[in-house]
Design a protein around this nucleic acid. Structure first.
Lengths: 204, 204
DNA sequence: TGGTTTTACTGAACAGTGTTTAGTAAATTT
DNA sequence: AAATTTACTAAACACTGTTCAGTAAAACCA
């Protein structure tokens, strides 16, 4: 009976449909306007139908977040592939910062909003986050091996670098920089200047 | 006529009342449970009354945020007053990080949530943020004057330090660290370890 | 094939949110 | 004492996430 297989495919397709609609809503109209009702409207189903595929909005947002991570990891592969470890570290930095500044809604969902993380039970691991983080960890490992940066603990080094870049991006996304009496160009200058400075400071 | 003066005092007192109720709700029940209706309930007025004193929730949250900044600035004065600049920088770091970790709801309102910033018109300056930031700027200025840290631009140095600490705190508050397969103690270790590392890296 | 069960879906409701408005009683002014 | 202004509220509006009873179609079984 290929029926149950087809049904399984249909189920997966429907979930993909919902995710895509949510993602579109999210990136084009902003989070505020991405309600279950509007997502349902977009795929031409009733709002209640979404709850046949997702137990709640948090669970759906977790899947949308997953899509965002796929995009980020692709960018890492394309834009951060130098063999020289420190150059690759710079590329990762650039790619991450630019991803955040150019896709604030996605970045928000991935690293700022609480909602999608509610889906993770305690002691459960954040697979998407860890996978993306692994790129940075590998790079930092190579840098440390060749004594290119002032870190001895790999994980702590990667975490510090992540923390630093996240701080800059999230301050920008959540409107804490421009209100310091800076215009748009000065904000970008501040962020990129900080990164350049930091790379110099951690370089051996 | 003392009447208009008394009315002015009453108005100020009422706003203080509302702010206090909101702050209490916020820190004790969390942001999710701090609705206008519940705040109104707490001060025993109708929800509509709040709109006679604040044009919307964002404006109220901006005032609550102001209270939070008063607390943070007080902490800076008490806990970061060493005369030796680099020691003072360490104290500011510690005070800021601890404030964030111990008062996640306040920190959220001050540096993560979008809502209170909606109140600021474009090109308007964020007074509270700038005042608190000034403490860091002064300290960084002293450090640079005495050639204690690897920065030449004062503002950029202070901004970098702020960004770094904010990154760590906000990743924690928005649940992005513990899901990396870390227990509570390891999270704290990671944060404080990163700070210690960073201070070493920027030290001349 | 016909009858039964399962599946996929929806309309309507519930309980909550921020916010507005019309109406009212009290305080103030004339 | 009458007129006006002030301070406040009940009720509604337009949303939100979510649940549940009901329904038509698909699948299964005899």
């Amino acid at each position: 009976m290929g029926i149950s297989e087809r049904k399984e495919r249909d189920k997966v397709e429907m979930r993909k449909n919902i995710i895509d609609a949510a993602m579109h809503m999210f990136t084009h109209e902003g989070y505020e306007n991405a309600s279950i009702r509007k997502i349902a409207d977009k795929i031409e189903y009733s709002p209640a139908t979404i709850y046949l595929y997702y137990k709640d909005k948090d669970e759906l947002l977790y899947d949308v977040q997953g899509e965002c991570f796929t995009k980020l990891v692709k960018i890492f592969h394309k834009q951060a592939n130098a063999t020289e470890p420190f150059t690759r570290l710079q590329q990762i930095f650039d790619a991450y910062i630019n991803f955040g500044l150019n896709n604030p809604e996605m970045y928000d969902l991935m690293f700022i909003m609480k909602s999608p993380m509610n889906n993770l039970e305690d002691k459960e691991v954040w697979q998407n986050g860890n996978d993306a983080f692994a790129h940075l960890v590998n790079c930092v490992q190579d840098c440390i091996d060749q004594k290119l940066i002032k870190f001895d603990n790999v994980w702590l080094g990667a975490f510090s670098i992540w923390g630093f870049s996240h701080g800059l991006i999230s301050l920008d996304i959540r409107c804490r920089i421009k209100v310091m009496n800076l215009n748009e160009a000065q904000v970008l200058e501040a962020i990129h200047g900080s990164v350049a400075n930091y790379l110099n400071q951690i370089k051996t």
